[in-house]
Design a protein around this nucleic acid. Structure first.
Lengths: 354, 354
DNA sequence: GTTTAGCACTCAACCCTTTCGAGTGCTAAC
DNA sequence: GTTAGCACTCGAAAGGGTTGAGTGCTAAAC
């Protein structure tokens, strides 16, 4: 038996239809989509042969055809039209990839994963507040005439550094002068003020110097930026174990809320360190059937965050409460501004770069 | 009507049973668990009153009772026994939280999230290889007599820095000497060799100097460590939209494989940059009903990684192939060793600290 | 030889009914 | 106040009939 062009065309139609509907495709549907008009009976003959050849299969006698793996393979290797990405899509992809994660985000995301896998419920973690980081000191380490390493010492004993490629060629001996300028005018102030200060200096500095300075300031501003409000949710998988989410619909609905739930998740509790919201006590409609347990933790002195867990109303409150508060405490300690040297630190005798 | 102690005890039993079974609890079950032996009829009387008072509800006349939100509330506020975490659990929690994420992990995790949300299939990202980062240069910026900022310039133009609290008080003027030692003996070599070199110096240095040096070397070693093999999976949620995973069982099974699937996921394709595995072509049993599309990307010069997507056999191969290769290209470019200054960088005129 | 219309046939999906049993509410006795 | 006993309720599971999309085959048309 031979794989004629018409057979291929039919196979392609079957695959593409099945991809979108997940339903076996019938001869009539195919006939309607064929280039050259043919009757469904003809298609049926062809289908029978394609089935015999192993490219298609029938879930049961009176159903349409679905592709077999062999059928998909042929489709992928020969029939599929390679798509080109639109320019917009390419740009979107690159944009997402280039959004660097801030350090805090990474910690928070990890905490979320940990909580969720510990408790077997979906977890969410937020960080809110108006933390004002300020620069305590600038250092510039010359690398060559185009590059230097900028090192910022920030409030809370944090250090950030990055290689900076200068817009102008710089005599390495100029770097100390630049650093001095930075330290003289731009330390101990909020990021917002830096712009003003820079303006004040416009007239006192030669143009190239000013240019370099503004570049450095911009870089510093970047580093000072801490996410204001970030919500990360993870662990949706855990929901599926629970009988109340047996049907995927419900589970999916809840997960969607969690995934982009920004506004819907319970707000910081004003009172104690721990809050339990049961079913209808939740404000968000989507959570009316679920309970939420939230604990708050401190991020340094000025920010606060929440770790929460979402589950069915019949969640194991006792276990959740205990573990969640353990996590909250752990996070608070982890994010303390002046961390006491921990046992671990002593052991390997170091702080950590990073 | 009064909330007697017995009523409370009954309520507690109902809640705790319901928490574990998700099934309405009947009078007989309760009777069996009561402290003081009573008949099920007595329990039924009490249940009727608890129901009337709004603490319990009946899904239908001939079913047992389940707690109402009000019932849970009472349980949480009064009846629940606060659990204490075992020491082991507390330690586990702290251990997870203290595992800092390496930079590469964060990028990879983010890429995974992006892929999955773009393509609406679960995604996994791996990084494998034996990347040897080496230190190009050390700098130590004195802060006070106890602290300094260590700045490492690494191969691939990466910079890392961290505040280091020294084990001994150090005269700030000693830092340049320490840095010189480091630069003289510990640059341009693999992390593994550092230990040996350090040993070689044992006798040539005064003890305190040696101590400080080893502390700094340990910190550097930490920074050089790049994850060797890391698999991150995300986006399980996407599966639930698909009819083939309508029943949560299937979805959950697949997700479990993904979540800790280390060994089961398709291995790096030796050939081209892209590989499609359809249904039974997969080695792992759990993936026999699903297809996997993987693309590989480069991490600098020595490492490779994979971005993959898992979906039903009827996945939209054309779309997935196009977008996935877009991501792979993007990642390769993002992780290039000598990144060309991007448009973005020119725009805001800076590199970024971080 | 290929294509088409026509027709009998198949079988999952849907709906309706019946059966079954866990669990109730009530009553009367202890 | 507690208990045994019994009739009752109602969801879940199992059986049976109907429906309709889709097939395979045959015989006629191209």
């Amino acid at each position: 038996m031979e794989l004629t062009d018409r057979k291929k065309q039919i196979l392609k139609i079957v695959v593409e239809n099945y991809i979108h509907t997940a339903e076996p495709v019938g001869s009539k549907t195919i006939a309607a989509r064929m280039e050259r008009r043919v009757s469904s009976a003809t298609i049926r003959n062809e289908l029978a042969e394609l089935t015999e050849m192993g490219y298609l299969e029938q879930p049961h006698t009176s159903a349409g055809r679905a592709p077999t793996p062999k059928g998909y393979r042929l489709y992928v290797d020969e029939l599929m039209e390679r798509q080109r990405l639109s320019l917009r899509e390419t740009e979107e992809i690159n944009a997402v990839l280039h959004t660097r994660l801030k350090e805090l985000d990474a910690i928070i995301a990890q905490a979320g994963r940990a909580v969720s896998s510990f408790l077997n419920y979906p977890a969410y973690v937020t960080a809110t507040g108006k933390k004002q980081l300020i620069v305590r000191r600038f250092d510039l380490i010359p690398v060559d005439e185009w590059n230097c390493i900028g090192v910022l010492m920030l409030s809370g004993n944090r250090v950030k550094s990055h290689l900076i490629r200068m817009q102008l060629k710089v005599d390495p001996e100029q770097f100390p002068a630049l650093a001095n300028l930075l330290n003289a005018h731009f330390t101990e102030i909020a990021a917002a003020e830096m712009g003003e200060r820079l303006m004040d200096l416009t007239e006192q500095l030669p143009a190239p110097m000013f240019l370099l300075l503004s570049q450095l300031i911009a870089a510093a501003g970047d580093a000072l930026e801490e996410q204001q409000q970030k919500i990360i949710t993870t662990g949706a998988r855990a929901l599926l174990k629970l009988p109340e989410f047996r049907d995927a619909e419900k589970a999916h609905a809840l997960m969607s809320v969690l995934a982009d739930g920004k506004e819907n998740l319970p707000v910081p509790s004003d009172a104690g360190p721990m809050k339990i919201l049961i079913g209808p006590e939740n404000v968000a409609d989507a959570l009316k059937d679920t309970s939420v347990v939230v604990a708050s933790y401190d991020i340094g002195d000025d920010m606060r965050g929440l770790v929460g867990v979402v589950g069915p109303t019949r969640m194991d409150y006792a276990a959740v409460v205990a573990r969640l508060s353990g996590f909250a405490d752990g996070l608070t300690r982890l994010l303390e501004v002046h961390p006491a040297p921990s046992k671990e630190d002593k052991q390997n005798g170091t702080g950590k770069y990073g």
